[in-house]
Simulated scan of single mutants.
Amino acid sequence: MTAARSVGLHRVIEPAGVLPQAALRLDPSPAIGPDEVRVRVRRLNLDAASFRQLAQRHGGDGAAVRAEVLGIVAARGKMQNPVTGSGGMLIGTVEEVGPESPLKVLPGDRVATLVSLTLTPLAIADGLRDWDGRSEQVPCDGHAILFARSIVAVLPDDLDPELALAVFDVCGAPALTDRVVRGQAPGPVSVAVLGGAGKSGSLALAAARRAGARTVGVVPTEAERDRLAAAGLADAVALADARDPVAVAAAVTGALGAAATVTVVCVDVPGCEHGAILATADGGTVVFFSMATSFAAAALGAEGLAADVTMLVGNGYVPGHAAFALDLLRAEPAVRRLFEARLGSRLGH
């Protein structure tokens, strides 16, 4: 096995020399190499920023959204929204494992990929006929290829596969939140989570509280405020549009009595960088988990505000992140209820 093969360089069609995530086109041919794994795809989970952009572009027309996703995959050999640059992840069944693959899976295992669809060779065989184009989770028949350095998890037997997929999609957020909170200097730690009623936001709140922090969840609507308050995941719930910097800072300081030690951004719309920075105390940390985040806006905004904050980009991977997130879901009934409410009828509820 070569280093180039292990990261999938041999699957890049164009441009030559870049890694699969940066490629314009990948080769999704089903024949696998000695260190690859082929998965029969059963469901895709589009990331929130990508699905929101597609839905808004087509005015909620599900057929048009479905057609665009099919077009992207056919043209690129992977699912990578050309506007947001993001993708999502998938669940499926392992079909074939190369003899040199280091991945701990066997044919027949039901698995979820913990790497982005933006770097996963993918082919769709059914035209997404069972998807109405109106939800992030996409019933699908096709195949995907995993590399030696891909990350994959066997689906737990005690959870509905769609519920597990929703958790795995955002499992990096709570693990990194836990690490950041526990890494703060001695003394009280407060955490503000923008988008606290969403999937990554609710898990981040649960992780922060477990790590001993005082928490506030910031949400944009009264309905989400009431839902999060009823869940009891945060010490306080504040109402503010995450794109309004002054409103966000006022909401956080009003709830906590001071700026937050750590601010975690879990919203799926652009323009939330400055509010997160303004809501964070000097010497504090901002963690961006949104694929809609602009590096330029964050860096230049912090400079313009003379904000002495550390800014982290959540890359979706922390060792043990999948198990950590599943443990939170199992241990926190309120988190599970929020996830199940989002999935709704697809879980038979």
Rank of each mutant, 00 (worst) to 15 (best):
V180P: 04
S200E: 08
Q184C: 12
L163C: 05
S202L: 13
A164L: 05
D169W: 13
A166M: 14
A173W: 00
S202Y: 12
G183Q: 05
V189M: 09
L194E: 03
P161G: 12
A208S: 14
V189R: 04
F168E: 08
G198H: 11
V189H: 08
V167P: 01
A211Y: 03
R210L: 14
G172R: 01
A175V: 03
A211C: 13
V181H: 02
R182P: 03
Q184T: 15
T177A: 06
R209K: 14
P188G: 15
P161F: 07
G212V: 11
D158E: 13
G195Q: 07
A185D: 14
A207W: 05
A197V: 11
G187K: 08
F168G: 15
A208N: 13
V167C: 00
A192P: 08
P161R: 11
V189Y: 07
D158S: 07
A173Q: 03
A204K: 05
A175E: 00
S202P: 10
D169K: 14
V181D: 02
A211S: 15
D158L: 08
S200L: 08
G172Q: 00
G183L: 05
P161S: 13
L159Y: 03
D178S: 11
A207N: 10
A197M: 10
C171M: 10
A206P: 02
